[in-house]
Design a protein around this nucleic acid. Structure first.
Lengths: 233, 233
DNA sequence: CCGGTTTTGTTCTCACGTTCACAAACTCCT
DNA sequence: AGGAGTTTGTGAACGTGAGAACAAAACCGG
């Protein structure tokens, strides 16, 4: 016998599905804003850019929230996904590193609208401390612990240069942060139980470059192949 | 018989591997900067934060660039990976949408250092046009086509609000761009042959929130379980 | 020159994720 | 009430990726 929370926590949702739920949530919000009350899996899949079978399977991990022959109630499904992800509650967030990127993140409107609240902006540079960014005053990095404890922060964002990232991560973990979103181009080592997600611009570009080069090479090879075939024929 | 480029283009590199190659490249650069000339798969795997077996398998898709009993020559392997990804050449890039995020991207130093060159910053807002950001003058969005053709641009970055993203993508595709990095929180529809990668801050945060909530629920459930067991005992 | 040691490259197995296909279940119309 | 038409939820097949394990190949010391 296992104890279960009210939402039946025994259900394990595959990681790939978790990564898509926010997309569905956004698509549902868009549909709701257009005044649409009900949608089929086909509709929603189209709006989210995925296969409808995949969408249905993803949703099935949450429960049976649709009606056969009808589809899904937009508002109801939206609430269920939001609850599952945890965005019905408010998540306090600290951002460390208020350079160009930190500025952009602090000003990002999607934070507030999706249940995330920036409770502190921290930077090691004394020249930045005291400035106000997006209505929040930048404080010294040393205030991390106090900020985290006072606001019960679980999520930290690292927007520092790469060299500082591991150090910041260590300090975050030490203060009790258990989820880190890392924008610094560095591999972070964290203890078991701490989640790290990384967002890396240059890696994304390099992946695109690889495929781009491949397209070019492919075209070249194809051209060569045509020539060769022509010669052989 | 199939025509092959000089790099033996018939080899198909799994997508998961492609996504890790830039990480290896970065780790190798760090090792080279530390004056290390040779490293084992174990060393490199540690620096890149992956399993050594996975690393070796990934590298094996490129060819046999290691020496058994010795390891890999750092500079040689670095060059091979760089060539495979395509960062030995220069990739011109245009950025559309020069808001907070666009600013940060334009100033991002990792661009230049990894073979990407920002050839134009475009924005639809007349108030921004003419300003200089990171040494490049912001031009009207209407200049997209001219810029792309003149500089032979293949990669475009979208940093606009969500509502404008699809329109920008359509225009990019029309001018011949075949790789798009999308920072706007919107699902883009593009024709076959065009690659899109998306970077979405709020999705990443929501994924973290889900796991965070799960940790909290798990702890709660565990606590309940202990109580229950205690009561039963 | 040869056995021992190290480390790569590769094979095999397992787990995960995607997609197809279809039965179950619901609505609507007659 | 009953049959036709929709649409969900899910079982099964398939493909991709991860990790363990090991044989092949290089170096080293005597």
């Amino acid at each position: 016998m296992t104890a279960r929370s009210s939402t039946d926590a025994s259900r394990v949702i595959p990681e790939a599905t978790v990564a898509r739920l926010p997309v569905y949530l956004r698509a549902l919000t868009a549909l709701a804003d257009s005044g649409i009350r009900t949608c089929s899996s086909e509709d929603l899949a189209g709006a989210a850019g995925v296969n409808s079978a995949k969408l249905r399977k993803d949703l099935s991990y949450l429960g049976s929230y649709g009606t056969r022959g009808v589809g899904y109630d937009v508002d109801y499904l939206r609430y269920q996904i939001a609850r599952e992800i945890g965005v019905t509650q408010d998540w306090p967030v600290v951002i460390v590193g208020i350079g160009n990127l930190g500025h952009a993140l602090a000003n990002f409107s999607g934070f507030r609208s999706r249940g995330f609240r920036v409770v502190a902006l921290l930077d090691a540079d004394p020249a930045l401390v005291g400035q106000t960014v997006a209505g929040v005053q930048v404080r010294p990095f040393a205030d991390l612990e106090e900020t985290v404890r006072t606001n019960d922060v679980a999520i930290g964002v690292i927007a520092t240069p790469a060299v500082a990232a591991q150090d910041v991560a260590d300090r975050m973990v030490a203060t009790g942060i258990t989820s880190i979103l890392n924008f610094a181009p560095a591999v972070l080592a964290v203890p078991e139980g701490v989640d790290v997600r990384k967002v890396d611009l240059s890696i994304e570009l390099q992946i695109l470059a690889y495929h781009e080069q491949r397209k070019a090479n492919g075209a070249e090879s194809a051209a060569v192949a045509v020539e060769t075939d022509g010669g052989a024929a």
